[in-house]
């Protein structure tokens, strides 16, 4: 629709109101250097050349410079269009452009080219596919192992609409680390993740825990969306009950003015407190910090557990 006089007036008013609002200032511990190194450009170019996507770019991850700078990336398969519209997420909501069955092999070749020994694979949600894209996840793991049988693979999967047959397809491909994020506390679920259910996510983690051979099971959530410490503690207990071993907790950072607003910025000491609560509950590893993201330094979190995997 071309802009009408009404639209122009509305946009003008909106701009004026936005100008009148206090500028969102990040606390010191969330300020990140904007310096981009040569590794950043190298990985970005390789991904673009091979029509691959990294969640680092699509989700506007605050750690992108550090991870790309160290030669690691979290690959996002199944395209860059997501079928859900989660209120915290920067990935584009749109009808996915078909299914790219060549993607697993292309990705495996790029991982080999980059010389990666550990790789994290995640995806957009694909509610348009009967298996939610599980088959492509499994094929990607298989292709990665064909190129390097010692490679360590972490998968961070969507909820697959709770289709446990699809979950099993991925588990049968034997990822080293199986991750699925619960994202937020029960009370905020409907607002933060429309179309998702906490019970469904907990069931997926439980399924991975009882699968043999068992992968390291991992989840993550954000704080700063309006939850209380009691609710965080309750969520950590629910996660513990699923058999999950690793939990990541990070500060929610609104990716654009159209996304949910941060209700507050947690101090690093508060993250330490959350990690201590998790450990007291019995979780094997809680990685909590302002800039912690699910796949941030993923294998340093899981290495000890990988060494004593069942």
């Amino acid at each position: 629709m071309t802009a009408t006089l009404d639209d122009i007036e509305r946009i003008k008013n909106l701009r004026e109101r936005m100008k009148a609002r206090p500028v969102r200032r990040l606390p010191e511990w969330l300020k990140i250097s904007a310096r981009l190194g040569p590794e950043y450009d190298r990985i970005k170019n390789i991904l673009a050349h091979n029509q691959l996507h990294s969640v680092c770019q699509e989700a506007a991850c605050p750690n992108i410079r550090e991870c790309f700078g160290e030669g690691t990336a979290t690959f996002m398969i199944l395209g860059s269009n997501c079928t859900r519209g989660c209120r915290f997420c920067n990935v584009k909501t749109a009808v996915p452009l078909g299914l790219d069955t060549e993607e697993p092999e292309r990705l495996a070749k790029v991982v080999a080219e980059l010389g990666l020994k550990q790789v994290v694979i995640t995806s957009v949600t694909r509610d348009d596919l009967p298996d939610g894209g599980a088959g492509i996840f499994a094929e990607t793991i298989r292709r990665l192992r064909l190129h390097d049988k010692n490679i360590q693979v972490e998968v961070l999967i969507p909820d697959l609409m709770g289709n446990m047959k699809a979950v099993d397809i991925i588990l049968e491909a034997r990822p080293d680390v199986f991750a699925h994020n619960v994202e937020t506390v029960p009370r905020l679920y409907r607002r933060v993740r429309p179309g998702a259910e906490l019970k469904r996510s907990l069931d997926i983690l439980r399924r991975a825990d009882i699968y043999r051979p068992r992968p390291v099971v991992k989840t993550g959530f954000m704080v700063g969306l309006g939850e209380t410490l009691e609710e965080i503690t309750e969520l950590l207990r629910l996660i513990y009950d699923t058999g999950t071993q690793i939990v990541t907790v990070g500060q929610y950072l609104r990716p654009s003015p159209g996304h949910m607003t941060e209700t507050r910025f947690y101090h690093p000491d508060e993250f330490r407190q959350i990690a201590a609560i998790g450990r007291d509950i019995g979780l094997a590893h809680v990685e909590a910090g302002p800039l912690v993201r699910s796949s941030y330094k993923a294998f340093s979190q899981s290495q000890k557990l990988l060494n004593r995997k069942i």
């Binding site: 079928t83 519209g85 452009l97 429309p194 259910e197």
Partner: peptide
Amino acid sequence: DGRIPRANMLVEDFTGF
């Protein structure tokens, strides 16, 4: 799909709303 280009489709999934 195949009759209309996917790029010409926009969806709003009301599940869970």
